[in-house]
Simulated scan of single mutants.
Amino acid sequence: MKISNQNKTLDLTYPQVMGILNVTPDSFSDGGRFNHIDAALKQARAMIRDGATIIDIGGESTRPGAAQVSEEQEIARVIPIIEAIRLESDVWISIDTSKPQVMKRAVAAGADLINDVRALTVDGALDVAAQAGVPVCIMHMQGQPQDMQDNPQYCDVIDEVADFLNERIAQCIKAGIKRENIVLDPGFGFGKTMAHNFRLINQFNRFLDFKLPVLAGLSRKSMFDHLLSLKVDERLASSLTGALLCAQQGAHILRVHDVKETADMLKIMNTVASATH
């Protein structure tokens, strides 16, 4: 399993760590910490040093109830840090956006992957992503960030998430995106209750049926607060546990805030898996 752009390939034989870099003032976990270029670049360097092979840069918070930002605002936030990282590193850079013009500008600045919580459903996004020629990550979300946690309901969360992803895969291919360059994300915490989220973990390997890379993004999610009454900065152990459970079921990419701890966990998991003699 691998994803490729014009210049390089990312081997997904073993799970890769995607480090979260929110250059926003209001993200749920680290809002305001890295919305200045020097702090953001310092954090990116630290995540690369700690084992991240992908840096996921977001300029608009998608936490429940988050306010929308303009295209111009988002571009102003993300492009300088993409350019700065690209100048000094060949690490994979992911742009976390739903806006077509942000995608276009980010790829031109050096981004290698488009990570879209709206699964390229915004008008023009499919065409821009196809023309960019880079891999895409499409995520399931019920509703929008402003209302997604207002009593989300499913007949069967696994089947409905899978059906949505199947439909979006078809649309991506129709638009000209290579099937092998589509990454799937079931969307933990995006229009799901705590019960829905834990069922997604329980049956995470169902999403491997698509024979495509699958991303797990559980880092510091409120599901752990609902279960264990933990504040955001107290969720390291629960985040690692969720990531490990998904990795053991075949997750190819783990999207996390705590890169070093996740990389250490994966090293132990892979060492145990290979210790057959």
Rank of each mutant, 00 (worst) to 15 (best):
M1T: 13
K2Y: 15
Q6F: 08
K8C: 09
T9W: 06
Y14M: 14
M18H: 01
M18Y: 01
G19P: 07
L21F: 06
N22G: 01
V23L: 07
T24H: 06
P25W: 11
P25G: 12
F28Q: 10
S29I: 11
G31D: 03
G31K: 04
R33C: 12
A40Y: 11
A40H: 12
K42N: 12
A44G: 14
A44I: 14
R45S: 14
D50S: 12
I55H: 02
D56F: 01
G59C: 09
E60Y: 10
E60L: 12
S61T: 13
T62P: 00
G65S: 06
A66T: 10
E71C: 11
E74R: 05
I85N: 08
R86D: 07
V91C: 11
S94D: 00
I95M: 03
S98A: 12
Q101I: 13
Q101T: 15
M103Y: 05
V107I: 15
A108Q: 15
G110C: 13
G110F: 11
L113E: 00
N115R: 01
V117G: 00
R118E: 11
A119N: 12
L120C: 02
T121V: 15
G124T: 12
L126I: 10
L126T: 03
A130S: 10
A130E: 06
A130R: 04
A130K: 05
Q131N: 13
A132Q: 01
A132T: 01
G133H: 02
G133R: 01
V134N: 01
V136G: 03
H140D: 06
H140P: 05
M141W: 04
Q142G: 09
P145N: 05
Q146G: 04
Q149T: 08
N151S: 13
P152D: 04
Q153T: 15
V157D: 01
I158E: 06
V161Q: 03
A162V: 02
F164I: 07
N166P: 06
N166I: 09
E167C: 10
R168N: 05
C172Y: 00
K174Y: 09
A175P: 04
A175W: 06
R179T: 11
R179V: 07
V183I: 15
D185S: 09
K192T: 03
T193M: 08
A195S: 11
N197V: 02
R199I: 06
L200G: 00
I201E: 03
N202A: 15
N205S: 14
R206G: 06
F207R: 00
L208S: 05
L208H: 06
K211Y: 07
L218Q: 04
L218A: 06
L218S: 03
R220A: 02
F224M: 08
D225Y: 02
D233Y: 09
S238N: 14
L240R: 01
L240K: 02
G242R: 00
G242Y: 00
L244R: 08
L245E: 14
A247D: 00
A247R: 00
Q249E: 12
G250T: 05
R255W: 04
R255H: 05
V256D: 02
H257W: 09
V259Q: 05
T271G: 14
V272S: 04
A273Q: 08
A273G: 05
S274Y: 11
S274N: 11
S274Q: 13
H277T: 13
H277G: 14
